[in-house]
């Protein structure tokens, strides 16, 4: 068993929540630049230029790209030969979030009770998904997920007879319904198959993938490309003010399904796709 002390986890998490918010990944920035070349709408181009300028300011001045510094969502790949020492993994991640959001002057956006709605004051608790994997490493993936785009997410239990056409129609309908609300250009995360909660988790997980990276399954990669093209014909455009760039990418993850079910979940990410990963 390889031992990993929680202090290392707290430290890594505290740093990654800040970096995620200050330094947008190169995949997203490149996607903005590529979109700028294709964008026909003058307003759309203006918006994309502002987004690029904003990314640069955030990076050099170490200030958040967006004021919604998000719900801190983690997917943790825990090697089964790892022994966490000094405390427990969930507490360590939450302590890292607490520390990072304070040190980085990030916004505290979490209310402790969904109905009573009093802010917890330190952006905890985080959302933590733990996947047990082979090996002796601890891989932490983090996403700062904004509320505006999360609100424009949908799940539907389709019928098997709806088939791939039904899936496509549903995804397109979701993007149309979301319109300008989730801060386009968006990344569309899709989970197909599994159960109700599995589909939602797959959709979320797909958003951790880098922009431009296709599914390893050829038929799914093809579907991603087809949907991206269709979505970018909707005309919604940057910030919904009209244009070619409605989505930067479409990511689809799938899982086996019940003979009776075809669940589809659509989780939308705003253009500020802030995700980081660290391996301990």
């Amino acid at each position: 068993m390889r031992e990993i002390h929680i202090d290392r986890i707290v430290d890594a998490v505290s740093k990654m929540v800040q970096t995620a918010n200050f330094d947008l990944g190169g995949d997203v920035e490149n996607a903005f630049k590529q979109a700028l070349n294709k964008e026909e709408s003058p307003t759309g181009r203006d918006v994309l230029n502002q987004l690029l300028e904003n990314v640069e300011i955030a990076r050099t001045e170490r200030v958040p790209i967006c004021q919604d510094t998000g719900f801190a969502v983690f997917i943790v790949e825990l090697g089964q030969d790892v022994h966490i020492v000094g405390g427990n993994l969930n507490d360590a991640i939450n302590e890292g979030v607490r520390r990072g959001y304070k040190e980085g002057y990030l916004r505290k956006s979490i209310v402790g009770h969904p109905l009573e709605r009093k802010n917890t004051g330190d952006n905890t608790p985080a959302i933590i998904h733990i996947e047990l994997v082979e090996g002796d490493q601890l891989k932490i993936h983090m996403s700062a997920k904004g509320g505006g785009s999360e609100n424009m997410s949908f799940l539907k239990m389709l019928k098997p007879s709806d088939g791939v056409e039904g899936v496509k129609d549903f995804i397109i309908e979701c993007v149309k319904t979301a319109g300008p609300n989730p801060c386009p250009p968006i990344v569309v995360g899709v989970g197909i198959g599994g159960t109700f909660e599995k589909a939602a988790y797959l959709a979320k997980k797909s958003l951790f993938r880098e922009i431009g990276k296709r599914s390893k399954l050829p038929e799914i990669a093809e579907l991603e490309e087809e949907l991206l093209e269709k979505i970018n014909k909707l005309g919604i455009g940057p910030q919904g003010m009209g244009g070619r760039t409605t989505a930067l990418d479409v990511h689809i993850e799938i899982y086996p399904a019940h003979i009776a079910s075809l669940p589809v979940a659509v989780n939308i990410n705003c253009h500020a796709g802030r995700h980081k990963e660290v391996i301990l």
């Binding site: 502002q50 790209i65 967006c66 919604d68 904004g146 910030q239 003010m241 253009h271």
Partner: peptide, 13 residues
């Protein structure tokens, strides 16, 4: 009126 969503660092100036 709309300001550019997700351009918080730029707008703050």
């Amino acid at each position: 009126m709309a300001a550019v969503g997700g351009a918080g660092a730029l707008i703050a100036k």
